[in-house]
Nucleic acid binder design. Structure first.
Lengths: 202, 202
DNA sequence: AGGCCGTCCGAACGTTCGTTCGGTCTGAAG
DNA sequence: CTTCAGACCGAACGAACGTTCGGACGGCCT
């Protein structure tokens, strides 16, 4: 006998999977009923509307990803190490929660009213958090806003091509993305493999 | 008296704008009727279905972006210069055709059947083209597939945050993205400004 | 003048949508 | 044994959807 809370949890997980597969507008409540095992009307015992489903998926996902990032970054003191820790955490979380993160990334504009306001505020805070991480590293002449969005692009684009069942391991992907962003494509790999030898101090 | 071809052109432009604003599923043919000035049934004089509208937008956009990339790259002979030319071209095209490129990027999974097959083939070819550009630069230990998708992520993510009416000029954005991808965030800007001095030869 | 084709429209079709309503069942409390 | 609230369902609601159909209008050819 599942508790009401855990029943909502599995409902949200089912909804995230099917929203990721077919899109929010492309999914009907009847699709979700079939996927979750609940009846069409039974879903409304747990949520008030289809939009609240989307909001709950995005809100919970944002809570987890932001908390994980703060924890990962807090373990480091050096600015560059903190940025590396963030990239690794964000990539690993993304690959471990592809459905939710795809819904968070791809269905960003489907909410309206107070739900949209709440999610947008969280997103602004998260972007500001990463921008601060970038600004803590003293690099002259780089636009930190563009750099932050470029970094988010590299990582969040993952959902369009990465398949966890493929050959690329999440940890390898995280390393490659961190190296690409920090050292660039032209930098020889041997340098990047030993970050202490990289020329970022002067 | 507009020709039939130009009428279809403006219809596709209107559709791209409104698909970009509200999403493919979030846009009704009645919305499009209102936006285009044609009657609801009049639209069907030019296209067979809503999905064909989406296909034509994506297909024509892909033709333009691929042709532009080939032309830009063909003007250079050095592998690194060819890659820089591609990045600049792709970013500039993206900022100049935000609506169409957002529809191309964001509504990638809404087509089915032969239309989906045709677009997917074009996309595969374009990715292979860029992957080849990357492989032409001899960088050891870098996964060119991941690098290609990371580059696409940096650029295609633009539609989620960039506003052409803002302060960031397209040319400046293209330079920053090229520099970030090629030299990385940690590389001092002065080095990147003189690519001949960068250490990519071994 | 008459026929025709391209352009475009108003009205309607059948379907599917998100949501609601009136219930049933179950297990715990009194 | 009765009561009651939480969990859940079948059937239906009105609205909106993509698409179709029959026809109107205007210019061009004969």
């Amino acid at each position: 006998m599942p508790t009401a809370d855990s029943r909502l949890d599995t409902l949200l997980a089912d909804a995230a999977r099917i929203f990721a597969e077919r899109g929010f507008h492309g999914t009907s409540m009847r699709d979700l009923s079939r996927a979750s095992g609940l009846s069409l009307s039974g879903i409304y015992h747990y949520v008030e509307s289809k939009h609240e489903l989307l909001f709950l998926i995005q809100d919970r996902c944002f809570t987890e990803v932001a908390e994980g990032a703060r924890l990962a970054v807090a373990r480091e003191t050096e600015p560059e190490a903190r940025l590396r820790a963030f990239i690794r955490q964000h990539v690993l979380f993304f690959t471990a929660h592809m459905h939710e993160m795809k819904v968070l990334s791809h269905e960003a504009e489907e909410l309206t009213g107070t739900m949209a306001t709440a999610i947008r505020r969280r997103k602004r805070e998260y972007v500001a958090f990463v921008t601060q991480l970038l600004e803590d590293i003293d690099v002259r002449g780089v636009n930190p806003q563009i750099a932050a969005y470029a970094l988010f692009g590299m990582i969040n684009w993952i959902y369009t091509w990465y398949r966890p069942s493929g050959e690329i391991q999440p940890g390898y992907l995280a390393d490659e993305i961190a190296r690409l962003f920090l050292d660039g494509y032209l930098q020889p790999a041997s340098h990047a493999a030993h970050p202490l030898a990289a020329s970022h101090g002067g």
